[in-house]
Design a protein around this nucleic acid. Structure first.
Lengths: 163, 163
DNA sequence: TATTGTTATACTCTATAACTATA
DNA sequence: TATAGTTATAGAGTATAACAATA
């Protein structure tokens, strides 16, 4: 890229998206995409993607959970869970154990290897988020957390009420 | 779904994702996905998707913008812009006008029809966000807005510094 | 040589639908 | 009949790479 093009690029951020900035949804999208891209890069060296990282976390926190339950927590379809669990099982992080009371279902468990992987991944993401949000004071980060949770809940309620 | 399954589903929200809730990125994702789904439904009757809505807004705010500039604002590749602009042009909302000084480029302009479409879409999304976030007081909504903008900026700075 | 818009192609994530084996 | 997991397939959104026209 030549000097002229670089200069033009540097000038671009003069808010050509002014009409969009008024929308919470738009700002959510921009913030999310920024963060998610970095998240993926942080997890890659550990052999995880955002989806497998999330699944590993849920199975860690709820040993014995079924794939159907996992699909509800992660808000994806059962068919999508198969791929994610296949991936984690191939990596030796998770096991499908038979359920005595229901031979159709699997109980998902994190292996010892998976447990260690989780610890490393959790620490990596914690460190990464700490670095990522240095421009926000700790109370501001907590405020953001709370507002995001409440916004998601509000949106969910509104949708479910409007059926 | 029978009664037993419904009961099980109703019980599910006992925070099996506890280990994920600590991460801002996770809460951003959940909130964003909730909102984006509703956004898409709001725009559908107007013949718009989230991507074409955003592009229309930017072209409204920056008449004569080129496709390359648009790709930078929207954070997508030039090849992706072609599809979006094709869509808006087919709908009669946007025109590609030749640029005298550069015969390779197009200057994008919103037609009168497109301008009216934008007004309807803007009002629809405003109304929808107002309904969606009723659980948040107006000052909280503003605080969320500001924190999202700063979080995105912080993440961007961190990434660019870490090259 | 570099850039604009374009096309063709591929990849990721997710959804839908049909299937099996159990319940 | 209904459910758990699976498979095959398709769609949306985006990326990469190569191209013609123009700078």
């Amino acid at each position: 890229m030549n000097r002229k093009a670089q200069a033009a690029k540097a000038e671009t951020p003069k808010q050509t998206d002014m009409l969009l900035r008024q929308f919470i949804g738009y700002n959510m999208k921009r913030a999310y995409l920024q963060v998610q891209e970095d998240m993926a890069r942080t997890l890659e060296p550990l052999g995880l993607r955002v989806g497998t990282f999330s699944a590993l976390a849920v199975i860690m926190g709820s040993p014995g959970i079924s794939q159907t339950q996992l699909s509800e927590v992660l808000n994806i379809k059962r068919s999508g869970v198969v791929v994610v669990v296949d991936d984690l099982e191939r990596a030796g992080a998770v096991e499908r154990k038979p359920v005595r009371t229901d031979r159709r279902a699997y109980a998902l468990h994190v292996t010892q290897e998976g447990s260690q992987l989780w610890k490393r991944a959790e620490a990596a993401v914690q460190a990464h988020e700490a670095a990522l949000f240095t421009d926000l004071e700790a109370p501001e980060q907590r405020a953001l957390q709370e507002l995001l949770v409440r916004a998601a809940r509000s949106a969910k309620h509104t949708r479910e009420a409007g059926k």
